[in-house]
Design a protein around this nucleic acid. Structure first.
Lengths: 204, 204
DNA sequence: CGCCTAAGTGGAATCCGATTCCGTTTACTC
DNA sequence: GAGTAAACGGAATCGGATTCCACTTAGGCG
């Protein structure tokens, strides 16, 4: 609530009541349709879902990105609101834990949505992984060679390196478990904070 | 449809010489145009750049994704080839270093391309950052509260947490420096491998 | 070496969805 | 309760992706 930007909160020219209602309906409708068909669902479908004409949609959201942005804003606001509620109803640590969990779900949702965008088709699905598979042998040779030459230790495999460097390259199909594990780890680290002082920080 | 891994390597039905030439031209042209206009450049432009008709493009690459995939494959192959060359011409460690550098450039290129895809418009540009800015206050409250309650140490700021968790959310405008720094770090770690044995591994 | 055939081609024709336009409806003002 | 301008819906328009088909041309064969 109360954002200084526009569309939803405080338009310079006060929106008419029905217009405001429609904007609301559009955001809600868009969320539904985007979730179902991905971000480049047919504009018409969104309008239909919201129960308004396409012109109305275009009036309030001239570009598709505007609509997506609005949906995102809306969801973020919910997320923020949740933080307040959790803070009021739980111990600080619990609230933090719960919220991160929620935040995690949120991010994952948005990623799934963004991923759908890339490939209208499923062709790209395992692309990142596929590329890594192809590169791995090549890099592995280099790594093996370096190792034989005594220039490196045995701390990392070629795949480790590729993963580490490529990193973002993966559109990530089912990172869910991984992400949750990381969060758990993070929280564990947080808890240990006051206990152990050494070996906590490695690099900025 | 055709076959699964075809188009460039070993089509069951031997391509006619000129067809093969055209495929080559299309991949090259697509690379150029995609680099200039992003992955959803006009199909016609790609055909024009390649000096062929649109039908020819469609014959060889029924879906846009097929074309993108082909370009990527092509680039990956180049990357692999580079690995061999470097391995032959340098000491193992140097080759590894140089190759990672090249690989880094490759990944970054592809990311820029993928990023362009998301937002035809620049609206999404700083979206990730923007969202983080909005969430930061909310999370910060939780963190502060937890800290005051003595449940956590002071090892991480709210922003750190958000960054760590959101991670992929950022389409990343100019990660270049960051990425290079990480690679340097990685190589340093590799070199130290045989020297220090402790504290190398933290988590898989 | 020239012919025959089917693969391959270019550009015109078609199709589909995004975007715009305009006459009508509806919420606020006085 | 009438006047007015904002807001609406759906039809019309526009642009680019995809398909179609009459025409070329590579390359095998007599």
């Amino acid at each position: 609530m109360t954002n200084r930007t526009d569309v939803e909160s405080e338009p310079r020219t006060p929106l008419r009541a029905d217009a405001r209602r429609n904007v609301e309906a559009l955001i809600e409708g868009a969320r539904t349709v985007f979730a179902r068909d991905g971000v480049d669902a047919h504009v018409k479908d969104v309008a239909l879902q919201a129960g308004v004409g396409v012109a109305t949609l275009y009036r309030h959201f001239p570009k598709r990105a505007d609509l997506v942005l609005a949906v995102l804003r809306h969801d973020v606001d919910e997320c923020v609101e949740t933080a307040r509620e959790l803070a009021a109803a739980h111990t600080p640590m619990d609230a933090l834990t719960l919220w991160l969990d929620r935040y995690c779900a949120f991010v994952l949702t948005k990623q799934g949505l963004a991923a759908a965008l890339h490939s209208g088709e499923a062709t790209f699905a395992g692309l990142g992984a596929q590329l890594l598979e192809r590169l791995e042998p090549a890099l592995d040779e280099l790594v093996q060679a370096a190792r034989v030459a005594g220039a490196t230790g045995e701390g990392a495999s070629a795949m480790d390196l590729l993963r580490a460097v490529a990193h973002l390259c993966t559109p990530g199909p089912s990172h869910i478990d991984y992400t949750r594990r990381m969060i758990t780890l993070l929280l564990a680290g947080l808890r240990q904070g006051p206990t152990t002082e050494r070996a906590t920080r490695t690099a900025p």
